[in-house]
Every structure is written in C-alpha cells, then in structure tokens.
Design a protein around this nucleic acid. Structure first.
Lengths: 205, 205
DNA sequence: TTGAATAATTGAACATCGTTTAATTACATT
DNA sequence: AATGTAATTAAACGATGTTCAATTATTCAA
C-alpha cells in the first residue's frame, strides 16, 4: 500500500516538525517556559494535534533529551583515539564539562531536571538507557585504569559514581547558580580550575 | 502603643502560620505541587492574603530554605569538637550527605532548584548569604588542612569547590533519580560507598 | 462520480496555577 | 455612633497541560 506509506511518512514528518519546533523553543527559553501552545503556534497547528504524536509534554522533552545524548556521544567519539585509559578518562572529563558549559539547558534537561526522567518510571521498561550508555563508557575506562594498576585499593562501581559525581557537581552547581559563594576573583573560571584540581588528584592515585 | 504592638504580633503570627503551612505541604508534596491555594486552604484564609505577607511564592520558599540552612548549620555544630581539620572535613562530608539523604526535598530546594535563588537576583543585595556561610565553613576547614601540610600543591578555592561538588554530585544525582545507571547490587548504597571512596582519596592526599 | 467510512485536525472546554485589584468586612479612634 | 484605617476577601485575568466532541479532509468501495 503506497498510500499507507505516504501517510506514515507524513505522520512522521509532522512529528519531526513538532520536535524541531520544541527544540528551538527549548533552546531559547528552557523547558518550563516552552508551552504546548508555543509549539503549536510555531508549527501553525492547533495545540490538540500534539497529543496525537506525543502522550504528554514530558514525552516531547524525553525525545529531545535523547538528542542531547546523541550529541554528547558524538563529542566522545574522539576518545577512541586515546589509547591510555588514564588519559582517556581525563579527556572524557574535559569533554563532559565542555558539553555542559556550552549547552547548559540541554545538560540541565539530561542530568538535573525531574522531567523527562519521570516519564521513564511510568513506561514499561523503566531504565534510563541514555544515561546508562554514557555511564557504561565511563565505567569501562575506569576498569581499564584499574587493570593497569591505577586507583589501587579502590572499587570500580563506587569510584565510577564518585568521578561522575565530581564533574556533575561542578557543572550542576554552576548551572543552577550556586557559584556566588565562590570568591569573586575565582568565580568565572571556578569550574575549569576545580576540574584541573581533580585531574591532579586522579593522576596521583 | 499596646494595640499597635498586638497588631504587630498578630501580623507576625499570621506570617508564621503561612510559613508553617507552607513547610508542611512542601515536605509532603514538594515545592511545585504546593500551591498558594493549598496553603490558603490549610490556614483557612483566602489566597489573596498571602500576598500581604510575601511578595510572591518564591519569597515563601526562600524563607523555608533559610530554615533548611539553619537545620544544616545545627547539625554541623558538633564539628566544633573535632580539632583535627582533616577529621573535621571528613565528618563534615558525612553530615552533609546524611542531611541531604534524610531531607531530600529540603536539599533539593537549597541546592538544586532554580527557585528560590531566582528571587535573590531581583532583590537589592544579590548574594546568597545562606550558601555562602556554609561554603565559608568548608573553605576555612580546608585552609587549616593546607596549613597543616595536607593537600600539598593544591589551591584553596578550586579545591574547596571540587570537594563541595563531589558530595553535591553524589546526592543530587541520587535525589534527581539518575542512579539507575549504577549496577543493581550497588545501587542502594552507592552514595555512602562513593563517599567512602572519596574519603580514602582525601586521606591519601 | 458519488456516498460511506476513516483519519486528521480543530476549537472549545476543564481544572489548575500565580497574581492583582476592587470591594467588603473588621476594628480603632475620635 | 460616626469616621477612618487596616485586614481580608471574592472575583477576575492570563496562563498552563490536557481532553474530547465536533468538524474537516482524505481514502475506499460502489
């Protein structure tokens, strides 16, 4: 049935339009200030139509946050060239932090916001695939570090979580504007500087 | 003027009632699901009255979040007894994490949510006093560690931010439900275990 | 080509939200 | 008791996410 196919294609097309409009508005104004009616206005459809393509607002931003993981994953590609796992771990930290600081709204959506993670708990398979992939990559690299004798006396899983926590902490405190507590002369570069401290520590372990 | 005094007292009393009702609802349901009308219902007044005591919803939760810092500060009191700054730093980490895990909604309000920090930027003195006090205490302790020869080759301000980031990262990832990426057998105790890893690292520096 | 069936799309409505304001009630003072 | 002031309310405004009956567009069979 060629007609059914075209229908299918058109349906996908509108879905894409919705996502694209949502993405633009989201990057301009953030999740909370992007309303269903905003999106509908942008694509020149009525608000109701959106609910024929997405269960709710959360599902739209879940789809967008997948795009964020795609982008982060692509940035991580270059790490394939770094053979030494310790160097790779350090490069990974830099890429992660850069991504977060360059795309604060997207990072917020991916790692800080309650949405779109809420959505996952209601759906059938309630694991967070996007995050799991990224964390697996981190864990693998750290496992290789351990195998080479780095981080002696440390345990893989908690150490991985700690390292993730450290970089996440730096950027999330910055993104959520808790950095005014840092002395003025350090404030602007505090995330980068703290990251350097962290690298120094990791290299000594 | 005794009457004016009583008026003043009654006004304070109602303000207290609003805050108390807001606090209860907030601890039950979180910030977002606590509405002005909910609070008004609880104290059996009309919603409008709240705006004679608080500029907006944000100001109410700013007041509540101050209470959170008070509570955290009180828990930190015991640290006065710990003379060695390194031990004190470690104890501080435990208290911080315990507070966060025992009062996740309050921690969220204090360190993760956009509100009530937004509110501060609009007000005249745009610094975050509550957070600054806590961070100062951390910085002081780390400064004493440095003075005793710990953490050689590290810089006070970035190191302080890093240490804060690490503990904040652990609890905030947990509170915002990013822990499903951790392997199941470690998941339940991952924050405590990662904290132990962190202590091990700090002690070796 | 026409009529019936199916799908896509809309517009209006619902409940809720934070917030504002004019009107009303309660109270203190003269 | 009348007046003036402060406390309180009810109603409204413009949003929000979401649902649903009604409408329009499209496809299929006769």
């Amino acid at each position: 049935m060629g007609i059914a196919d075209r229908k299918e294609r058109e349906k996908e097309e509108l879905r894409g339009l919705i996502l694209e409009a949502a993405r633009k508005l989201f990057l301009e104004k953030g999740v909370d200030k992007t309303s269903i009616r905003n999106i509908a206005d942008k694509i020149e459809y009525s608000p109701g139509i959106i609910y024929h393509y997405f269960r709710d607002k959360n599902e739209i931003f879940h789809a967008l946050h997948q795009g964020g993981f795609q982008a982060l994953g692509e940035k991580m590609q270059v790490l394939g060239a770094v053979k030494n796992p310790m160097e790779r771990l350090i490069a990974m930290g830099s890429i992660y932090i850069n991504f977060a600081m360059e795309n604060p709204d997207m990072y917020d959506l991916m790692f800080i916001k309650e949405a779109p993670i809420d959505h996952i708990y209601d759906s059938e398979h309630d694991d967070w695939k996007e995050g799991a992939g990224t964390f697996n990559f981190l864990r693998q690299t750290i496992a290789q570090c351990l195998a080479l004798g780095y981080f002696q006396g440390h345990n893989l899983e908690p150490l991985s979580y700690l390292i993730w926590s450290a970089v996440h902490g730096m950027v999330s405190l910055s993104i959520r504007k808790r950095c005014e507590v840092v002395q003025l002369e350090y404030r602007e570069t505090i995330v980068q500087d703290a990251l350097e401290e962290f690298f120094t520590i990791l290299r000594r372990l």
